[in-house]
Design a protein around this nucleic acid. Sequence first.
RNA 1: GUGGUUGUAGCUCAGCUGGUUAGAGCGCUGGAUUGUGGUUCCAGAGGUCGCCGGUUCGAACCCGGUCUUCCACCCCA
Length: 460
Amino acid sequence: MSQKPSIPKGTRDFSPAEVARRNYITGIIRGQFERFGFQPIETPSFEQYDTLMGKYGEEGDRLIFKILNSGDFVKNLEPADLAAPDAQKWTPQLCEKALRYDLTVPFARYVVMHQNEIDFPFKRYQIQPVWRADRPQRGRFREFWQCDADVVGAGGIVQELELVQLYDRVFYELDLKGVTIKINHRKILSGIAEVIGAGEQLVDFTVALDKLDKIGREKVEAEMLQKGIPQAAVAKAAPLFELGGAAQGQLDQLKELLKDSKTGMEGLAELEELFTESSKLGLKASACQLQITLARGLNYYTGVILEVAAPESISMGSIGGGGRYDDLTGIFGLQGLSGVGISFGLDRIYLVLEQLGLFPDQLDQNLDVFCINFGPAEARDALRLVMGLRDRGLRADLYPEAAKLQKQFKYADKRGAPYVVLIGEEELANGTFIVKNMEEGSQQTYKREDWVVFARSLQT
RNA sequence: GUGGUUGUAGCUCAGCUGGUUAGAGCGCUGGAUUGUGGUUCCAGAGGUCGCCGGUUCGAACCCGGUCUUCCACCCCA
């Protein structure tokens, strides 16, 4: 009895063409990460249960994949526990490990564990899969790849400035135009909540505000009231709903609103510097936008918040995000280290590039030369030529058996080989080989000793 | 986690108010073309109709469950 195979919901197989495309994206990201001075690390796919739990809020805890203990995993439970089903309560006793939920918390853990061997400021990048027990949708998977670059142990807005440049350079190199980098500041949001009198409900306030573009002002106000934010506070927030346009204009209006909030003014000063310096440096492919409603992202952000939106023509959630978190490592006992970082969502960037047709055609070509097999004696000679080409760095292959020519040519065509080499009975006797240009259909005969001439013609 | 949606050949999809032998295009295999692919022509193979159960004389079609896909919330890359 054979069973019909399947893979878990929200996971995917990647075929050769897809891997080539994913490698194209990660190659560009990795290249830019390294140019910007980041160093790679890797961490385990699963961490201790306690390392991850409680770091992403209540919703995050629910979305963490827990790993059931091996062996007699119920031995820690009391008979009374078994009588009263309560998954919430049992989980910590049944699970000592959980799958990585993002790359930031494992990085914080890494920094604390390796603090004595790290030279600060430490700039690290990490490209690895993460797992979330979310309900899948387009661009939302249970297993997906993040490409993170973070700096730990460095304050000052210059890091944020660099990260904006890093985003821009990657999108420029991917030829992805029209990306918007949305920027906000946690301290501004705190300041606003403070001055309008909703300081206690900062999270509820920002979560509701974040939905402005999507559900409109009235529904946002309704949600705020429903969450228990006073009517007077909501009324005071009115100017926010009208904000828009150039960053400087928004900043000037916010200065008026936040003049009595020290925290708020700090945030404004930082954003002002970021926007001023950013416009001096310039951007090649993307645009920065101050979006005061931006609140998404993890709770631990304390400074600048970044989120990257795909070009407007594409319906897709954010393709990247990031920000600054003071005291990144505090939860693991190392106080006073500030961290700032960004993330690229590989899988969503893939979908965007695919939809816009931005993958280079070249990615489909995985062979430079394909050699036809005419029989044992001819194949021996062909293999010698193939090995010579391989030694020169060319991708060359030989058909494994003397199948019908039609079959071998069809195979070469599908493999995308631009050149096919033929060494048949006649060429074997003559000491020659034929090169067929598959695109043009033309053929050229070379003397065997001139194979390097042929190889060089492919390498220019 | 809540509500909805989808599933028919390798792929994209038809398939009438339930009716007996489930179709097309593309792809695949073979041939026209025993030293030439991408064009053309001819022939052929390929489906437990996602899975399990129910209703019915009879189910791809109706009902329930389950898995999967996608969508809206929630949240996020």
